[in-house]
Amino acid sequence: MTDPTTPPSPETASPAILRLGTRQSPLAMAQAEETRARLCAAHGWPESAVELVPVIASGDRILDRPLAEIGGKALWTKELDVWLADGTIDAAVHSMKDVETVRPATLTITAVLPRADVRDTLIGADSIATIPAGARVGTSAPRRAAQMLHTRPDLTVVSFRGNVATRLGRLERGEADVTLLAAAGLDRLGVADVGTPLDAATWLPAPAQGAIGIECLAARDDVIALFAAIDHAPSHAAIRAERALLAGLGGTCHSPIAVLTRHDGDTLHLIAALYSPDGTDRVTGEITVPVGAPEQATTLAHQLLADAPAAITRHFQSVG
Score class of each variant (00 low, 15 high):
residue 1 M to L: 09
residue 1 M to H: 04
residue 13 A to C: 06
residue 19 R to I: 08
residue 19 R to Y: 14
residue 29 M to C: 02
residue 31 Q to Y: 06
residue 32 A to V: 07
residue 33 E to A: 14
residue 34 E to N: 12
residue 35 T to Y: 08
residue 36 R to Y: 10
residue 56 I to A: 08
residue 84 L to Y: 01
residue 84 L to N: 00
residue 86 D to L: 07
residue 89 I to V: 15
residue 90 D to A: 10
residue 98 D to W: 04
residue 98 D to E: 15
residue 99 V to R: 03
residue 99 V to N: 02
residue 107 L to F: 15
residue 110 T to L: 12
residue 111 A to E: 05
residue 113 L to C: 09
residue 114 P to L: 08
residue 116 A to F: 10
residue 124 G to M: 02
residue 130 T to Y: 03
residue 133 A to W: 05
residue 135 A to F: 09
residue 143 R to M: 13
residue 143 R to F: 03
residue 143 R to I: 02
residue 150 H to P: 05
residue 175 E to G: 09
residue 183 A to V: 00
residue 184 A to D: 14
residue 185 G to R: 07
residue 188 R to C: 03
residue 191 V to F: 12
residue 192 A to G: 08
residue 193 D to L: 05
residue 196 T to V: 15
residue 197 P to M: 06
residue 205 P to Y: 09
residue 210 G to F: 01
residue 220 R to Y: 10
residue 221 D to P: 06
residue 225 A to D: 15
residue 232 H to A: 12
residue 241 A to T: 07
residue 244 A to W: 00
residue 261 T to W: 00
residue 262 R to K: 10
residue 265 G to V: 06
residue 270 L to K: 03
residue 272 A to Y: 03
residue 285 G to L: 03
residue 289 V to Y: 02
residue 290 P to K: 04
residue 294 P to V: 13
residue 294 P to T: 11
residue 295 E to L: 07
residue 301 A to R: 02
residue 303 Q to L: 11
residue 307 D to M: 12
residue 309 P to V: 13
residue 309 P to L: 11
residue 312 I to F: 01
residue 316 F to R: 03
residue 320 G to S: 13
